[in-house]
Design a binder for these strands. Structure first.
Length: 472
RNA sequence: GGUGGGUUGGCCGAGAGGCGAGGCAACGGACUGCAAAUCCGUGUACACGGGUUCAAAUCCCGUACCCACCUCCA
């Protein structure tokens, strides 16, 4: 069975056929680093990380480019409000985003280019468009350069819209546009209101990039004129991706073969960007939940499904994930270590091949976990070994292997271990006493000891191999 | 006005013509001194109204409600 994915441009699930056998080029629109990342922002990071992992699992050599937009109107406005340089705000938020990705085990892309580092490539592309008659410098002397929508007959092809059906942008700045739908490739510096540091020299005077041009320029630089998959959030289909495709193709570059778009996460029925307080930023959520639990929550829904975020649903997801995790822990106690490289079960593979069907993949893991739990009763066995290895391997494809070093708590790990062995020594004596009471069938005494330990916040659980304890 | 997406059991969330994905919760049973965990079992779910079909949550027509995008929001 081949890998199939839903292509937004053709609106159908298609077989993935790479331009070059064995290789996959992937470009994903990353974030505009203007504020702290929230749950909605990282969904795209997690979704495309799963895509990357699946492609690698299938044996593709993946080149994954995810950009950072580090200059735009919002960054300039916000930084000015906060009284700090725009580049400081962008850099700080970029680091914040990296931390969020790390906390969710989102693997770094092959490269993460930033818009401000690619002005020459953009100028080159804009120049090409002007030469070919698809772009023009504004006639009002503003220094802007616009893409000429009317000059490109297939404009609107990605989102299946006719130019004449588009609502003319009422609020668009009409400075020197031939058509209100023309969009800016280059924005001339507004002297006085914008800092000098936010302007770069160009053939059309000092200025800064339009939004869309950066992605066309950077995708072209790192992936070539034609590449396999372009991804991003649904909101980017229009205008961003439509414009990227138009300006790239108008410059003679075939651009992406497949377009993938992830759906939204909303809260209280609204886009997070509108309704966001501070409670849903990644650092705030990670105060209450582990990164692996949040990632499981995100992966358990299909990437094209709208998710209504709630802490109740996140709670449930966390419980469901712990079922898998607890199985691996019990198996590890019996087996010593669970080997890597286990086989993926057929249902899992089928689900993943079908447009990254992570919900089905997760269900498949739960089924294998159930089998594994039955095998545990039989102690160490080849069957259990294979089963646990399989669970681990499947979780790993989803970036959810609890034993992945990426999840190791940073910094205080050694401290935790010391504390754990200290508590263990203290509890051991009490458990020994309880064991004797149980031996004598003195249940009242045994339960009293268990209650005493519980008072200290430690839960004792009896297992076939003896009692264990966990904090809280 | 244009272009898309959605409405599934108490909850989350898949599926896309025929056998009840999976998880959480609940209830019963097994196991356990009791718990916990685990396993087994228990559900007349597909917004509404028509239609097509031997068969519809799934296809078609209509209705209602919700959401997204329409030029710098993942």
């Amino acid at each position: 069975m081949t890998f199939r994915l839903y292509d937004t441009a053709t609106r159908e699930v298609r077989d993935f056929v790479p331009l070059e056998a064995g290789k996959a080029g992937l470009y994903v629109c990353g974030l505009t680093v203007q504020s702290e990342p929230h749950v909605g922002h990282v969904r795209s990071g997690v979704n495309f990380d799963v895509l990357q992992r699946w492609l690698r699992h299938l044996g593709y050599e993946v080149t994954f480019i995810r950009n950072i937009t580090d200059i735009d109107d919002k960054i300039l406005i916000k930084s000015s409000e906060q009284g700090r340089p725009w580049y400081n705000l962008a850099y700080a938020m970029h680091r914040e985003l990296d931390r969020a990705y790390d906390a969710l085990n989102v693997a770094p892309p092959t490269y993460e280019p930033a818009a401000t580092g690619h002005v020459p490539e953009m100028i080159e592309l804009i120049t090409e468009l002007i030469i070919r008659g698809h772009a023009y410098p504004a006639e009002d002397g503003s220094g802007d350069v616009y893409f000429d929508v009317r000059s490109w007959p297939s404009y609107g092809e990605l989102t299946h819209q006719g130019v004449d059906d588009m609502e003319p942008a009422a609020d668009a700045d009409p400075r020197g546009k031939r058509d209100p739908r023309d969009f800016a490739l280059w924005k001339g510096q507004k002297l006085g209101s914008e800092p000098d540091t936010a302007a770069w020299p160009s053939p059309w005077g000092r200025g800064r990039p339009g939004w869309h041009i950066e992605c066309s320029a950077m995708a072209g630089k790192y992936l070539g004129a034609a590449f396999d998959i372009h991804g991003g959030g649904v909101d980017l289909r229009f205008p961003h991706h439509e414009n990227e495709q138009a300006q790239s193709r108008a410059a003679g570059r075939p651009f992406a073969t497949y377009w993938m778009h992830n759906a939204w996460i909303t809260t209280a029925g609204e886009k997070m960007s509108k309704s966001l307080g501070n409670s849903l930023t990644i650092p705030a959520v990670l105060d209450q939940y582990r990164g692996i639990e949040l990632r499981y929550y995100l992966v358990a829904a299909h990437y094209r499904s709208h998710v209504e975020f709630s802490f109740e649903a996140l709670d449930e997801a966390a419980v469901g994930f712990r079922r898998m995790e607890a199985f691996l822990e019990r198996a590890a106690e019996l087996l010593g270590e669970i080997p890597g490289g286990g086989t993926l079960c057929a249902e899992f593979v089928e689900a993943m091949d079908n447009d990254l069907g992570t919900p089905g993949a997760v269900a498949a893991i739960h089924d294998v976990v159930r089998e594994g739990n039955k095998l545990i009763a039989g102690g160490d066995s080849a069957a259990l070994r294979g089963n646990a290895a399989s669970v681990r391997a499947m979780l790993d494809v989803l970036g959810l292997d609890p034993q992945d070093s990426a999840w190791a708590s940073t910094g205080s790990a050694g401290e935790d271990d010391k504390l754990k062995s200290a508590v263990d020594a203290l509890v051991a004596g009490l458990l020994e006493e309880r064991a004797q009471a149980r031996e004598a069938k003195d249940w009242a005494r045994a339960d009293a000891i268990r209650d005493q330990i519980k008072q200290a916040g430690i839960e004792v659980t009896d297992t076939p191999t003896g009692p264990t304890w966990t904090v809280n």
